[in-house]
C-alpha cells in the first residue's frame, strides 16, 4: 500500500486543508521506538482514508516538560509559537498519540489563544470502532492472549479518559486483565512532570520498576500503553526485569495495525 503523509503546508499550496491535524509530538518524531507508533497510527489513518495532515518540521514541543519543571516562560514561548502556526493555517481539530501534548493543547492552549478540538488517538480509534470502520478480528493473533493496559496519568486522572483505550483493546478479542492499581488509582510510570528528562530522586526503587512488576504479576505477555513516555518507562522496566523476550510493550495503534494486518 502507498502511504501518504501530507503536511498542512503542502495541502495549503494545493488550496486544501485537512479535516484533522495529527500532532506527532517530539517523542513520536525522534524516539526510535515511538516512531513505530507514529507510523502505525498513520497506517490506520491512511487505511481509513482520513483527510489528515501533519505539521512536519513546523511542529515544535508543546512546552509541557518546561511548564511542569517550572519554566513558565519557556512554556508560553512554545505555546504562542505553536498557536501562531496552527491559527495561521486555521486548524480546527487535532489528534495526538501523546497524552502530554493532548493535555497541554486541550487544556492550556485555549487561554493563550489556541482554541481547537483536541482528541487523543485512543478516542479517535474508539470512534472508528463505534462507526464500524475497525472491526473485531475474531480468532486473530491476540485471541485469548492476556493483555494488560497501563493508564497514562495524563489521559486518566488528568482528563478522565479511562474507557476509550479499553474499548480499543476489546476489538483484539484478547483477554484484558487489569493491574491491581488501575483507572483512577493507576500507578504513574514515573515519567510525568518532566521526570522523563532527569534522574529520579533518591529512594529505594524506581517508579517504573514498581509499575512493571505489577504489570508482570498479571501474567500478561503484552503491556498496552497509550503514551510515549509510559512506553519508554515500561520497556525499560521490562528490560530491567530481563523479560523483554517474553513480554512486549505496545501502543494501542500498533496493536490495531497488527490485528487488522495493515
Amino acid at each position: 500500500m502507498e502511504y501518504n503523509v501530507p503536511t498542512v503546508a503542502e495541502l495549503k499550496a494545493q488550496g486544501k486543508s485537512p479535516e484533522i491535524v495529527f500532532w506527532v509530538g517530539c517523542a513520536g518524531s525522534f524516539d526510535e521506538r515511538v516512531k513505530s507508533v507514529t507510523v502505525a497510527f498513520v497506517k490506520i489513518l491512511n487505511h481509513l482514508n482520513v483527510n489528515f495532515a501533519v505539521l512536519g518540521t513546523e511542529e515544535a514541543c508543546t512546552g509541557d516538560p518546561a511548564k511542569r519543571a517550572g519554566n513558565e516562560f519557556m512554556f508560553q514561548m512554545q505555546a504562542m509559537t505553536n498557536i501562531e502556526v496552527l491559527n495561521g493555517y486555521g486548524i480546527q481539530k487535532i489528534v495526538t498519540a501523546c497524552p502530554h501534548c493532548f493535555n497541554t493543547l486541550k487544556n492550556e492552549y485555549p487561554e493563550l489563544g489556541g482554541k481547537y478540538e483536541v482528541i487523543h488517538h485512543s478516542q479517535l480509534l474508539q470512534q472508528f470502532i463505534d462507526e464500524g470502520k475497525i472491526k473485531m478480528t475474531e480468532g486473530g493473533e491476540f485471541k485469548g492472549k492476556k493483555i494488560t493496559y497501563h493508564d497514562s496519568c495524563y489521559l486518566g486522572r488528568a482528563n478522565n479518559i479511562y474507557e476509550a483505550p479499553r474499548k480499543v483493546l476489546e476489538v483484539l478479542d484478547a483477554d484484558l486483565v487489569e493491574m491491581k492499581r488501575c483507572k483512577t488509582t493507576g500507578l504513574c510510570c514515573g515519567a510525568g512532570g518532566a521526570q522523563m528528562f532527569k534522574e529520579p530522586e533518591k529512594g529505594n526503587k524506581d517508579i517504573n520498576i514498581e509499575r512493571t512488576e505489577e504489570a508482570l504479576q498479571t501474567g500478561a505477555k503484552i503491556i498496552a500503553a497509550a503514551c510515549p513516555f509510559c512506553m519508554t518507562m515500561l520497556s525499560d522496566g521490562v528490560k530491567n526485569k530481563e523479560q523483554e523476550h517474553n513480554v512486549k510493550v505496545y501502543d494501542l495503534a500498533e496493536l490495531i495495525v497488527q490485528s487488522q494486518r495493515l
Partner: peptide
C-alpha cells in the same frame, strides 16, 4: 527546547524524518 524545539538534542530539520520509514 529553546534551541531545537524538542526536549532532546535533535535538529528541528529532522523532525519529519520518521515518515521515511513509510
Amino acid at each position: 527546547i529553546e534551541n531545537n524545539m524538542a526536549p532532546w538534542k535533535f535538529s528541528p530539520a529532522d523532525r519529519f524524518n520518521w515518515a521515511d520509514k513509510l
